[in-house]
Design a binder for these strands. Sequence first.
DNA 1: ATTTATATCTTTTTT
DNA 2: AGATATAAAT
Length: 744
Amino acid sequence: MELEYLEGLNEPQREAVLQTEGPLMIIAGAGSGKTRVLTYRISHLINHGIDPFAILALTFTNKAAAEMRQRIEKVVGSEARSIWMGTFHSIFARILRIEAHRIGYTRDFSIYDTEDSKSLIRTLLKEMNLDDKTYRVGTVLHRISSAKNGLISVNEYQRNELFRAEDEGNRIPEMGRLYRAYQDRLLKANAMDFDDLLFNTNVLFRDHIDVLNKYQQKFRYVMVDEFQDTNVSQYVITRKLAAVHQNICVVGDDAQSIYAFRGANIQNILNFEKDYPDLKIIKLEQNYRSTKTIVQAANSVINKNKAQLRKAVWTENEDGSLIDLVKAGSDNEEGVLIANSIFEEKMQHSLRNSDFAILYRTNAQSRAFEEALRRKNIKYRIIGGLSFYQRKEIKDLVAYLRFTTNQNDEEALKRIINLPKRGIGEGTIAKIIVAAGEAGLGLWDVVSNSVSFLGARLAGPIDTFATLIKSFRYTAEQKDAYETAAHIAKTSGLLKELHEDKTVEGLARFENVQALLNAIKEFVDNPQNEDKSLSAFLQSVSLLTSAEDDKDTDRDKVTMMTIHAAKGLEFKYVYIVGLEEDLFPSQMMLTSRADLEEERRLFYVAITRAEKKLTLSYAETRYQYGRLKNCEPSRFLKEIDNDYLRTNHSLSNREAYVNSFVRNLTPRKPEQINATIHTPSSDFTPSDTSRLAEGMKVEHAKFGFGTVKEIDASAHDRKARIFFDKAGEKTLLLSFAKLRIVES
DNA sequence: ATTTATATCTTTTTT
DNA sequence: AGATATAAAT
């Protein structure tokens, strides 16, 4: 067994697997079989009698953890389930839940997501009378987040002259007070944000030596994947945990560090050598994934960066085909061209949809590709974007669940107290918060005794709400998570409200809530989950990014995602799209952080996802904020050695244009829709466009389908008006965005 | 308190 | 264009 899995490894790989004792750093180039090495290394430990419970493996995404666990299970069997493997956030949330009472929390603490955090900051700004235009919510949160990721406590922050000077320079001198107020409120709400999960773990280990000792003894082997993306807070935790046994293994690639914006610190790699003088370093430089062309093009890009550990990634693979460069007239045409290319390559080389990936810089870019692929009947899936758990209806129900387990959760309370409408307006909510603050009590104390705090007039509806929550709390004590959640969904009136909404969107929302309930049922039915309480479910759910299509049996789909989400994955054919200056590299990155090198590393990550063939594309025009904007090709395109490139001269076809140019659909009267058709170039006469638009079917969520009947092409300015049948009975309202062409 | 009209801002990546 | 905040109307 052992020989079997060592057989396929090259020398440094084998060494990395066998070197289980003492500090080890593996510098793993892209495609060098890193996951394989990690998998075998852990399997090797288990095969040699190490208790899986003594192994801690930290990754950056849930997906990476799940995949590795699966692969280990193939080698060692069901023992793999016992390994402590997961993201930093999920592992330490688990530990914090066990030890919460030590640091002033209860085990039912809530986890605030970014939306909750921002909402809290907004209320704080109001309460402290600070202008939200000078104190931008995003900036404030980012500032607090960086402090916590760098292990700077509130006290230190306020004491530190450097921060004070910086904040005064930025005209936000109250930052220190804000930070304090924010942390106070989180503690009062028995809630932690993402950064607190790490920060508070540090506090826990610092102030409670016995707890630290317990986990130091427990984890004999500590492993960190994607080490280049750890921040100070994460690094200190792992260093402390490994302090006794010194069996720490970190795996990373400085060339793939793409999370500096989140506090990741390449310094960690350099410090690592200082912290562990007898550190062993192994470099994996042979690439098994990609063709020579791709590997060399990637090298030529990354070598433009100054800050890097020199490392020579090479491959014995074949040369492979050249990199295609596609120029499109518009973002929509870019979608069509890529969809066509996928279609053709698929036919020519008899490939599967799942062999293809489209990678972009920002989530917003996915639209054009979705539309083009849908038209060609190519199945696709999108990773990331608005995840399932960020949707309004899901967050609403989750807020009910959160508040049922934790009555101090202020953000959850604000969300649900008047949902469905109970006649509790913003004014009333503000009064509740003020009353609680004055009495030095929690919100729930006020809500559950509303008469004595707010008088009988306001108390009526609040009382109803309080009684409802009390009954939910009782249910939660008696029943498991699923029964409780189903009961809450029904009794709160959430389901009823959604059920009455017969629009397309309303239907989808209703189904989403059902899907959440199903997910809770699965959680309860899973024998691996011992604790079936509502609060246990919430814990597991708050750290999920996306509701991964586990239930989606059809895996043969083209994958679309941001480059960040693509790290660690590989595909035969990869399309990197939107290679335009200011988009990729992102303008923000260049102006606010002046970090072109991180953008270039991002490009490097994208290129090295490809196994067989890479296609790059950019558009000359792109819709942004409703306007057509001219784009310049990205500087990155010029950085690729011409020897590896082949420009694709395929010209766009007219039909493709027009299909995607029906825009600005403006309802005037219920039976009439004003649609504006923009064309990108003066090649198109108004009659040209209108002829093509005729007969198209139009879909609007509020009133179903209609067919284009008549087109008034007399309008100037490359616009045409469209009239079509009214097909629904609801009053026509104004979500123009939902209007789209479904078929021509 | 709630709905509806109008104005303003957005401008990245993710646990 | 679309989301969100604010003002005005109900």
